[in-house]
Computed example of a mutant assay.
Amino acid sequence: MTLWIAIGAVALLSFAFKAVGPAVLGGRELPVRTRSVIALVAPALLAGFIVTDVAGPGWSSLDLTVLAGLAAVVVLRRYPAPMPVALLGAVTVTALLRLWAA
């Protein structure tokens, strides 16, 4: 649940920054370096949330089936698979591994 609260907070902060930006800048453009940093903040935070959720608190509860599902998404996205297909592949891999382990 904490993960979803953090994701929601980051989404709200991102929306607030994007809403306040035009008012503060008054139509001026941000420098290119600033725009590139802002563009990379959300993916970096999301990657951090995913890593900490997969590894568990204190890196003590790593779930290898979820890790395999994430790997399936990476492999399917590497090839021109649409996101819904990649997500379905990840769910399938994770479910099959959990059934096999049970």
Rank of each mutant, 00 (worst) to 15 (best):
P31R: 10
G58P: 03
W59N: 14
G58W: 01
G27Q: 03
E29T: 12
G26W: 09
R35Q: 12
A42W: 02
G26Y: 03
A55V: 06
A39H: 04
V54R: 11
I50L: 09
P31Q: 08
L25F: 06
T34Q: 02
R35K: 14
V37D: 02
D53R: 15
L45W: 10
T52H: 15
L45T: 09
G58C: 07
G48A: 08
V37E: 00
A39I: 03
F49I: 12
G27N: 03
L46E: 03
A39Y: 03
G58V: 03
G27D: 00
T34F: 04
S36P: 05
P57C: 06
L30I: 15
D53G: 15
T34I: 11
G27R: 06
A55F: 02
G26I: 01
F49A: 15
L46T: 05
P43I: 09
G56Y: 02
A39E: 02
R35M: 13
P31S: 08
E29K: 14
L46H: 05
T34L: 06
V51Y: 07
A44K: 14
V41D: 02
I38C: 04
A42R: 09
L45Q: 11
D53P: 14
L45R: 09
L45A: 13
F49V: 14
W59V: 14
I38P: 03
E29D: 08
I38T: 08
R35S: 12
R35L: 15
G48N: 08
T52Y: 11
W59E: 10
I38G: 08
A44P: 04
V41L: 11
V51L: 13
G58Q: 02
G56P: 00
R33F: 12
T52Q: 13
G26A: 08
V54C: 06
P31L: 10
L46P: 07
A42N: 05
T52A: 15
G56I: 01
G58H: 09
T52R: 15
R33W: 10
A42C: 07
P31D: 05
R33L: 06
A42K: 06
D53H: 15
L25R: 07
V54L: 11
F49K: 12
L30Q: 15
T52N: 14
L45C: 14
V51C: 10
V41Y: 05
A39P: 03
A42S: 06
G48T: 02
A39K: 05
L46Q: 10
